[in-house]
Simulated scan of single mutants.
Amino acid sequence: MSKQRKMSPSSFLLLFLTIILCSFNQFVDANHLIQQTCKNCSKNDPNISYKFCTTSFQSDRRSQCAQNLEELGLLSIKITRHNVTNTCDYIKDLLKKKDKDPFIKECLNDCLDVYSDAITTFREAIRDYKAKRYEDCNFKLSSIIDASTTCEDGFKQKNDVTSPLTKRNKNVFQLSAIALSIVNMLNVDKLNDGTL
């Protein structure tokens, strides 16, 4: 019968501290990556707020595992997709309310159409992204930005109407712009590496 070795309290403490330090270092590295990426995104695109960018990534716990720009880029697309899906659900809830003005109802239906199409586009964009077809991914993400502006512009056709989706449309626009900015950075890196 073999004897099982017990871990001494000092060995246990050392192991525990090593795990904590490794986790902390990964957190610090991921945080630095987020800050640097958001700094570059906001510098390259006046539509991107540095604070919005960092807050968006930091609110998603998966960002703390991102080890490079490529992983952060994929996460940015997924965060945007989640936001668009959530917006579709919100629009459906608004459409269930019976007392909607016919014009607003028509605008909401148009928004639901463009955002529903965007969800399908995300599948293709992610496929292109993973295959490093950044120009194709860029094209698809640009169409998602267009969806948010198309939705918002629909409400502006009548002067006395306020869009119930303004904040959500702005968020989708900015999240898409962040993802697009990262894709463009990766594409430039790919061109510079001569891998095209």
Score class of each variant (00 low, 15 high):
Asp136Cys: 13
Asp117Gly: 10
Ser10Gly: 07
Leu33His: 01
Lys105Asp: 03
Asn171Trp: 03
Phe27Gly: 09
Phe24Gln: 09
Asp113Thr: 15
Lys96Phe: 10
Asp146His: 10
Ser2Gly: 12
Ile119Val: 13
Asn138Gln: 15
Lys105Arg: 14
Ile182Met: 14
Ser59Leu: 10
Tyr90Asp: 10
Phe103Glu: 11
Arg168Met: 12
Pro164Gln: 11
Gln4Asn: 10
Val84Asp: 12
Lys78His: 06
Cys111Phe: 05
Asn47Met: 10
Ile178Met: 05
Lys156Val: 01
Ile144Ser: 01
Asn171Leu: 11
Leu21Asn: 06
Lys190Asn: 11
Asp60Ser: 09
Lys170Gly: 08
Ser181Glu: 08
Ala131Ile: 00
His82Trp: 12
Val84Arg: 01
Ile104Arg: 05
Phe139Lys: 15
Ile19Gln: 02
Ile79Glu: 08
Tyr129Pro: 01
Ser163Phe: 07
Asp160Asn: 14
Thr87Phe: 07
Asn159Arg: 11
Leu69Cys: 00
Tyr134His: 05
Cys22Leu: 14
Thr149Gln: 13
Leu186Val: 01
Gly154Val: 01
Ala147Ile: 02
Cys107Pro: 00
Ser116Phe: 03
Asp110Ser: 05
Lys39Gln: 15
Gly73Val: 02
Ser56Ala: 07
Val172Tyr: 06
Asp110Pro: 05
Asp89Cys: 09
Glu152Tyr: 09
Cys111Glu: 04
Asn187Arg: 09
Gln4Gly: 09
Thr121Asp: 13
Phe139Asn: 14
Ile48Trp: 01
Leu165Val: 11
Lys170Arg: 11
Ile104Met: 03
Asp146Pro: 05
Lys51Phe: 03
Thr18Leu: 08
Val28Trp: 05
Leu186Lys: 04
Arg168Glu: 14
Ser8His: 06
Ile48Arg: 04
Lys98Cys: 06
Asp89Ser: 15
Gly73Ser: 07
Phe12Thr: 00
Ile182His: 12
Ala125Asp: 05
Ser163Trp: 13
Ala131Glu: 08
Lys39Ala: 14
Arg127Pro: 03
Arg5Leu: 13
Thr87Cys: 08
Val161Asn: 04
Cys38Arg: 02
Ala179Cys: 01
Leu33Arg: 05
Glu71His: 08
Ala147Ser: 07
Cys22Pro: 07
Thr80Asn: 13
Gln67Pro: 00
Thr121Trp: 02
Gln157Pro: 01
Asn83Cys: 04
Ser163Ala: 07
Asn187Ile: 04
Leu14Asp: 08
Ala177Phe: 10
Ala179Tyr: 10
Arg5Glu: 10
Cys53Tyr: 00
Phe173Met: 15
Glu71Ile: 08
Gln67Thr: 10
Leu165Tyr: 04
Gln67Arg: 12
Leu95Pro: 02
Ile19Val: 09
Arg61His: 09
Phe12Lys: 14
Lys158Cys: 01
Lys97Pro: 00
Thr85Asp: 13
